Amino acid sequence: MGHWFYRNIVEPGKLPLLVALASFVLTFLATRTVTRLIRAGKGPFRNVRPGGMHIHHVVPGVVLTLIGGFGSVAVGRHEAGAIVCAVLLGMGAGLVLDEFALILHLDDVYWTEQGRKSVEVVVLTTALLLLVLGGFSPLGVDEVTPEERQGRGSLILTIALNFVFVLVALFKGKFRMAIIGLFVWPVAVFGALRLARPGSLWARRLYRNRPRARAKAGLRAFHHDRRWDTARRRFQDLIAGAPDRVLPSRHPPDEGPPDDRPDRR
C-alpha cells in the first residue's frame, strides 16, 4: 500500500491534490453537520449575524479559496507551502460549493429543494477529483499512445472528437454524463448516443417536429427519474439533511385567509 501510494500519489506530485480533496470533503461534511445542528437548535452553534446581517459561510469560503489559490501559485514547488495552500483551497472550496445553490439563485435556498444543487455539485466535484487522482486526464489524453502524440493531427482529432461527444451530451441535457465524460470518454459517447432529455436544447430544436421522439424521450426520462431519484435523494438527505417541506396552502391562491375574503353574499 505504501509503495502504491508513493508511486501513484507522491511521485507524480499529486499529494497536494489529495490533501485538497480531503480538506474539501471534510470541510463540507463538518459544515453540513454544524448547519444541521443550528437548524435543529442543538449545540453551541449559531448563525453569524454581526450588526443583524447574516454572514453566509460562502464569504469566508471565498477568502480561503483566494488565499489558497494565489498562495499555491506563489509558493511554487515548495512542498510544505503547497500542502498548506492545498488545505486552505480545499476548505474554501468546501464552504463555497456548500452554498452553490445560493450563488446560482441569488437567494437563500439552502434548505429548499433548489438547495439540493449544492450537494450535487459537491458530489460531482469529488468524483472528478478522484478521477484525476486515479490517473484520468481530460478528453482521453491519457490514452493517446506516444506515436499518436508525435502526430499532431491524430492528437487534435482525438481530443476534438471526444470534445464533440461531451458537447452533444451536454446539449442533450445529460449534464452529469458530460462532466464525467470529460475524463471517461465512453460515458460521453453513451450520453451523446442516447435520446435527449425533455426540455434540453437538443430536444427543443431537433424534436420539435418529431412527436414520437418527444414522447419516447419523455417516457424514458420518467422511468429513469423514478428509478434513480429516490436513491439519490436519500443519499443527499443522509449527508446533507433533508430540505424543508413546503406545506400546501389551505386556501385557493386567489383568496386570502377566511377573515380577508370579500363578502360574496
Rank of each mutant, 00 (worst) to 15 (best):
M1D: 14
W4Q: 05
Y6R: 15
E11N: 15
G13I: 00
L15C: 04
L15M: 14
S23I: 14
T31L: 15
T31S: 13
R36Q: 14
R39F: 04
R46H: 14
R49G: 04
M53K: 14
H56D: 03
P60N: 07
G61T: 07
G61C: 08
V63W: 01
T65F: 07
G68D: 09
G71L: 00
S72K: 02
V73F: 04
A80R: 15
G81T: 04
G81P: 09
I83N: 08
C85L: 00
C85I: 01
C85K: 01
V87R: 06
D98K: 06
E99G: 10
L102D: 09
I103A: 10
I103Q: 05
D107V: 03
Y110S: 10
G115N: 14
G115T: 04
R116F: 13
V119R: 08
E120Y: 14
T126F: 15
L129P: 09
L129C: 11
L129E: 14
L130W: 13
L131C: 09
E147I: 09
G151T: 07
L155H: 05
I159V: 15
F163H: 03
F165T: 00
K172D: 12
F175R: 14
M177F: 14
P186I: 01
A192Q: 11
R194G: 08
A196H: 05
P198Y: 12
A203S: 15
R208C: 05
R210P: 00
R212G: 02
L219G: 08
R226V: 11
R227Q: 11
D229E: 09
R234T: 01
R245T: 04
S249R: 15
R250H: 06
H251K: 12
D254K: 07
P257N: 09
P258Q: 14
P258F: 13
D259Y: 11
D263I: 11
D263R: 11
D263T: 09
